[in-house]
């Protein structure tokens, strides 16, 4: 099931290759620029932050902003580590639950046969439209009714049942030959054991891809208006607070941005080789 790494070109010339490379390089610089900017701002000493015009490089790099970040953030009501803990908790719970719940449901939808299957499959395809950013206000009402507001439940539960996660998993599992599943059944395995011991080990690329999407989504959860208690707030809220202090805190704000972007990048780099294999199955048929 490995995706071919390269293919000899039939159309296209050497000159065209170079032109494409230069074009991609320019777009790449545009995409990287804000990220590069946060990184250099975070290691600039304060006198360099206020140079005019601003320099795109650092003369005397320093770690002071990161030290200040720890101090400022710890001078707030709760220690900085608490925000990191909150975000990690949310990200890990959401990622693990999403992978398991999506895998079990995807197995039933792609390999089972039962009344209502067509309707559920169609529902999931339409539900791809309704991400948590669209549902936000309506979810607030539901959670207020259920009494989830200002608890960890409010920033974990809504992000677990991701239609996109289920959709990707279903598409990928659809590629697994039915013969493998029939063989497992002949050996006396039930649906759950077939899914757990036969199907899931074969969809590792899809699991890794879901891990990226789930982690990245959960790590960005701000909990805005779902959470009031300072000790339950996740990391992005601290970042927003520091950034809103403006130019005086520019270095510290950049440091907090850098700290926040490291975990999803690490997860992506670990899982990235599997992404292409999964996304190749992401096609939507009308």
């Amino acid at each position: 099931m490995r995706v071919r790494k390269s293919r000899k070109k039939y159309g296209g010339s050497r000159g065209g290759d170079i032109a494409i490379f230069i074009l991609l390089l320019l777009v790449g610089l545009f995409e990287l620029f804000p990220i590069y900017l946060s990184v250099i701002q975070s290691i600039k000493p304060s006198q360099e932050l206020f140079l005019f015009p601003p320099k795109m490089y650092v003369i005397a790099p320093t770690g002071q902003n990161f030290v200040d970040l720890l101090n400022t953030a710890s001078n707030m009501w709760v220690p900085f580590s608490r925000y990191i803990f909150n975000s990690m908790l949310v990200a890990v719970v959401v990622t693990v639950c999403q992978i398991f719940f999506c895998s079990f449901a995807a197995y039933a939808l792609s390999k089972g046969k039962f009344p209502g299957q067509k309707a559920l499959n169609k529902t999931i395809e339409v539900a791809l439209l309704f991400t948590s950013s669209v549902m936000f206000i309506m979810q607030y009402m539901v959670m207020a009714t259920l009494g989830f507001i200002d608890t960890y439940l409010a920033i974990t539960l809504p992000y677990i049942a991701s239609p996109m996660g289920l959709f990707l998993m279903r598409q990928f599992m659809g590629q697994i030959p039915d013969a493998i599943i029939e063989a497992a059944k002949l050996d006396g395995a039930g649906h759950f054991r077939t899914c757990w011991q036969v199907v899931m080990p074969n969809v590792k690329p899809a699991i890794m891809t879901l891990m990226i999407f789930a982690f990245q989504g959960a790590w960005q959860v701000t909990g805005y208006s779902f959470i009031y208690s300072e000790e339950l707030k996740p990391l992005p809220t601290v970042m927003a607070n520091i950034s809103s202090a403006g130019i005086a805190r520019a270095g510290v704000a950049a440091a907090s941005a850098v700290v926040t972007m490291i975990p999803p990048i690490v997860i992506f780099l670990i899982c990235q080789s599997n992404v292409m294999e999964t996304m190749a199955q992401s096609g939507l048929k009308d």
């Binding site: 777009v27 790449g28 995409e31 990287l32 804000p34 990220i35 900017l37 946060s38 701002q41 990245q216 790590w219 960005q220 701000t222 992005p236 970042m239 927003a240 950034s243 520019a250 704000a253 950049a254 941005a257 926040t260 972007m261 999803p264 990048i265 992506f268 780099l269 990235q272």
Partner: peptide
Amino acid sequence: FIFYAPSLTGNIFTTWQLI
């Protein structure tokens, strides 16, 4: 990786405030 990085880092779009 480079092109996907902005989606990956999410809240980093606040850096545009600086620009």
